[in-house]
Design a protein around this nucleic acid. Structure first.
Lengths: 253, 253
DNA sequence: TAGATTGTTCTGCTCTATTGAAAATGGACG
DNA sequence: CGTCCATTTTCAATAGAGCAGAACAATCTA
């Protein structure tokens, strides 16, 4: 998006404040004023206004993100057609594997976790619904990029780069493009601790009837608990099966 | 919440715009300017600013709620302790009954749907996660109010009133309080088309160790498909069982 | 009790958001 | 192809809104 010609600064500041509150997991006026570059009284004015409309909860001297955002967030998610088609299947896969199952979509070159379901043994991660991640360092992202036109992949890689998240992250462009080729061949992507140490995933793309990816599902599990046998044999099959069912649901109903 | 002494009007206007977009399910500049009482160019400035930060998606001339809100919304929900304890059980209940299962919490005297899971035969409703409803007209709300101190109930009823949503809504205060007594006795609440014609629900409260309600779960189903037998015998048992498991999970872990 | 920290209120100044009109844009239709 | 109409987008001027800073209140610590 091009820079707005006449930005409304107050709006940006408001969301800046909200993001700080989220980051700090609840915060007070002074604390926020330190991080956002405006005075205490201005922050205070913002917060009382937001609290009045229930966009933040005030508990004593601490302010928290309000549940009103759930209305907007859930609404935005429900508008995403793939969500409706995928949710039940993602739940089922989490149930069957016992692991953490994720659904990711691409928006403006970044990945957004649209939904996740926890199986009984699911790892606890830093991911949560709505979280944004770079595409190159997750299995999900690779699965999505593998089924996009070359020029689109180039554009995204150029815009967002390939910074290393762990020592396993693929940071070389050529190497990454070769990896996408592999993904295309086997129709699923593997994340070998490329975003988080100790975590690996199997991800399968969900494509439309022109074979363009619109989302991806993954099963994430800790390296030390799930051995190679299950990881390289059972999980790809499970993920592919789920992706397939979702595709059918999405494309033909 | 008391009226802010120094409200930041721009913030209110921004959220007003966002709510209009949600209500209209996507809207253009003029359309929004008609509903919000400010000029087109001002609306345009707001929208470009919001789009720049990806809080709205621009598609041609239409603006839509952006997925960035999912991050804030899901975060707010995860901060609600009952969510984590309840989600898996709600899913299970939806699976077993095949109906629509809801989880509601109270905030500032109103009900907020925190989560819902659809069974195979689930009705399609106007409810969605994050939606706010008055407590008096839903089984969920009655289940929550029944396990709150009298003075709190009085305060909420006074603040929000008991407007009729359908011809079955209980609008008389005395009658409503008597209904709560019944709910306390049987430990579940029945919604007999009190919020929507053709829809009835069984709702069970989820209480903490002082027997104060913190949420409620319900099973919703259409009158014409689910007969009295199943409705009055099977569903209460199922809902109570689920509420019970959630309580254990919530209070002792 | 003094001192430190944080939240809240207040006032005037500055700069921002808004208005209103005019210029682009993009269909729809003959 | 060009003419409408409806819409979005730009622009300049101005009213008024948001902000900084100081003062006050409240709470906590030592």
């Amino acid at each position: 998006m091009a820079e707005p010609k006449h930005p409304v600064r107050t709006v940006s500041r408001t969301f800046e404040i909200l993001e700080v509150i989220q980051e700090l997991d609840g915060a007070g006026v002074s604390e926020i004023a330190d991080r956002v570059d405006i005075g205490k009284s201005a922050v205070h004015n913002h917060l009382t206004t937001l609290a009045n409309e229930e966009y933040v909860d005030k508990d004593g001297d601490q302010y928290y993100i309000g549940l009103s955002f759930l209305g907007l967030g859930a609404y935005a998610r429900n508008r995403t057609p793939i969500y409706d088609a995928a949710k039940a299947e993602v739940d089922k896969l989490a149930d069957e594997t016992g692991e953490l199952v994720n659904l990711l979509v691409e928006k403006n070159g970044m990945g957004i976790y649209l939904y996740q379901a926890k199986g009984d043994n699911a790892v606890e991660l830093d991911t949560h619904e709505g979280k944004r991640v770079r595409l190159h360092c997750t299995g999900l992202g690779k699965a999505i990029l593998a089924f996009r036109p070359d020029e689109e992949v180039e554009r995204i890689l150029t815009e967002h780069g390939l910074p290393a998240e762990t020592s396993h992250t693929i940071t070389d462009r050529e190497e990454f493009l070769a990896e996408l080729e592999t993904v295309r061949e086997q129709r699923y992507a593997v994340d070998r601790e490329e975003r988080l140490n100790g975590l690996r995933c199997i991800a399968a793309p969900i494509t439309d009837d022109t074979d363009r990816s619109i989302a991806a599902v993954s099963v994430s599990c800790p390296v030390h608990r799930v051995g190679d046998d299950r990881f390289y044999n059972d999980l790809p099959e499970a993920a592919l099966g789920t992706a397939n069912v979702i595709e059918l649901e999405y494309n033909y109903s």
